[in-house]
Design a protein around this nucleic acid. Structure first.
Lengths: 233, 233
DNA sequence: CGATGTCTTGAGTCCCGTCAATGCACGTGG
DNA sequence: CCACGTGCATTGACGGGACTCAAGACATCG
């Protein structure tokens, strides 16, 4: 890689906090890779040969069953990390929901580099713990929330996380955004079917809580009401 | 603490791999604590003041909603780690399902010790990644599996994890074990109600897949069939 | 302007949740 | 020892929320 100091996600990704010489060394190990929408970069159950940092774009991490049922276990945004360090196999697949740009490392190489650079392992730990928190939150959603609550929660989550991507750090979340997911994928994140997702969205729209100018864009018209419907902890 | 070298979980817990002097230093920071069944040691949303290693017993990590709905997000066994390092607040509550013994650290103290001891942070990372894998697996269960599949999966999981606790490392899992969960708690892990759990267990019993000599003990009579019913990935 | 894929909407069904009664084990006290 | 109360689990009857199946609407693109 040419020059990590110019990287857009430099301050939020796991590379943040590395010394200049460490950053340089890590940069030598990785390569930038462009991925187009729909492309899968990691396969569940396959040998874990690569890990990567997301520079731009949105991807999904998913697991599926023998009969094809699929659960999306994570939505991956820019500056997030994908892949499974320190394990033989990848526990999930990763597929691009939009065109994306990755900073890819050989897993074995990355592992040994990480073991020699505590600051990097610390960042990895932070990132893993944050993801674990989000996974727990989502288990609550999948185990206990109603369809309406799930949809409301997802919309708010997307509003916030898509907002973070733009460096503006607007904590409250965007009021208008484009969904990187189609209806099926929303269903696969929420443990619902495509029809239920569609019906719930229609209802929120009819109630004036949101507007849907087209299939992918969402306007939040009444954030407070949406938050009530999400029935947060 | 007196002497960590004698600790039962010494070889599986995060302390594994520490140098003798590191172990000694860490031991100085912790204290053993006995917990009785039903007692809560960490509260969701409270300041994250302590973290701990589980020496003996089984605990649950849970999150709940304003109206009381509760989701168990993790079952914690001996040698597992509880609490949230590097964060202000605890994202979940932890409650003992059986009498238990912990090795407790002040979170702030533990954090700064960890930052100075890369080997410890590496173990923490491994443990966080493993837990993340399990959380993802469980998201698939909560999002996509039927009641029967959920129950079968839980029984197999308990069979394996309770088997690991005894140092024998019998990979296949126990055929007879005592559930540390009551029916309500099983429901709260699986995203089901107490009645559905009970009905499913009765059906597995009627079909000869399992036997239930009493409320808490399970005999697996036909493991293969149970595995089929679990509809694993 | 069809062709195609995605989304929406409707009608019917089913699995699981809700409500309620009963069963069972255990402990306490008469 | 038995009566009674308590807490948990089981079982049954019923209803509802989400799933299934099936049209129909809409957008995109050749």
């Amino acid at each position: 890689m040419k020059d990590c100091t110019q990287c857009i996600v430099r301050n939020r990704a796991i590379c943040a906090g590395l010394e200049p010489d460490e950053l340089e060394a890590l940069g030598q190990l990785g390569r930038k890779q462009r991925i187009s929408k729909g492309q899968t970069v990691l396969w569940e159950g396959d040998d874990s040969v690569v890990v990567a940092n997301v520079i731009a774009g949105v991807l999904k991490a998913s697991m599926s069953m023998a009969d094809g049922r699929e659960q999306i276990v994570g939505i991956v945004f820019s500056s997030d990390f994908i892949g499974r360090p320190f394990a033989q196999q990848s526990p999930y697949s990763v597929t691009a929901l939009t065109d994306a740009e990755l900073c890819v490392f050989s897993r074995a190489t990355f592992d040994s580099f990480a073991r020699k650079h505590p600051e990097l392992e610390h960042k990895l730990l932070q990132q893993a713990l944050n993801e674990l928190d989000r996974a727990h939150e989502w288990m609550l959603l999948l185990g206990k929330k109603t369809a309406t609550e799930r949809i409301a929660t997802l919309l708010l989550e997307m509003s916030v996380r898509l907002g973070e991507t733009g460096c503006t750090a607007d904590k409250s979340g965007l009021d208008a955004f484009e969904l990187p997911l189609d209806r099926r994928q929303m269903g696969d994140v929420l443990g619902l079917t495509i029809e239920t997702v569609s019906r719930q969205l229609s209802r929120l729209k009819a109630d004036g809580v949101i507007a849907l100018p087209d299939r992918r864009t969402v306007f939040i018209r009444d954030r407070e009401r949406l938050q009530d419907l999400a029935a947060a902890v």
